[in-house]
């Protein structure tokens, strides 16, 4: 009797269709495309700000294009998904043990959400939006 193990190759470009949890993972990973493009938009805004009022006004004008509004809506959805996935797994990377017990994951995650809501409200308030 001879051994002849059969190897099943994982398809490199389509493996994530195999299971919903892989699709959720890829959805999380592609948030970087939207957050990355958004960061570049912020960088361009900073550049225009440094160039003077007229240039900065031009940047705000460009922001008001329909394509920009659409991008913002999409990017916001992906960004929120990134936030939720990040907070939900935060207790795995940073578990908190006090005495003989670990804090429940829900407490660590919940703490992140509370800080997030507070910080977001603060930044809105700071920006003059109520």
């Amino acid at each position: 009797m001879s051994r002849r193990p059969y190897v099943r190759e994982v398809p490199r470009t389509t493996w994530f269709f195999k299971h919903p949890r892989y699709m959720r993972y890829m959805a999380r990973e592609v948030t970087c495309i939207f957050i990355g493009i958004y960061t570049v938009i912020l960088l361009v805004g900073l550049a225009r700000l440094s160039e003077g009022p007229a240039q900065y006004e031009g940047f705000l004008e460009a922001l008001r294009q329909p394509g920009s509004v659409l991008f913002h809506l999409l990017a916001l959805a992906f960004s929120l998904y990134n936030t939720f996935t990040w907070f939900n797994v935060a207790p795995k990377a940073l578990p908190v043990q006090v005495g003989d017990e670990h804090w429940p994951d829900s407490v660590v995650s919940g703490g992140h959400y509370v800080v997030w809501v507070g910080l977001s409200l603060f930044i809105r308030f700071w920006a003059g939006v109520l």
Binding site: Y38, V69, L76, A127
Partner: peptide, 26 residues
Amino acid sequence: TAFVTPVLMVLTLLAATGHLPEMLGY
């Protein structure tokens, strides 16, 4: 980015829809 990007996007979205937040004025 998990903590601050969503709210920044909300601010620039407001600017994009013509409701410029006070702080984003030049």
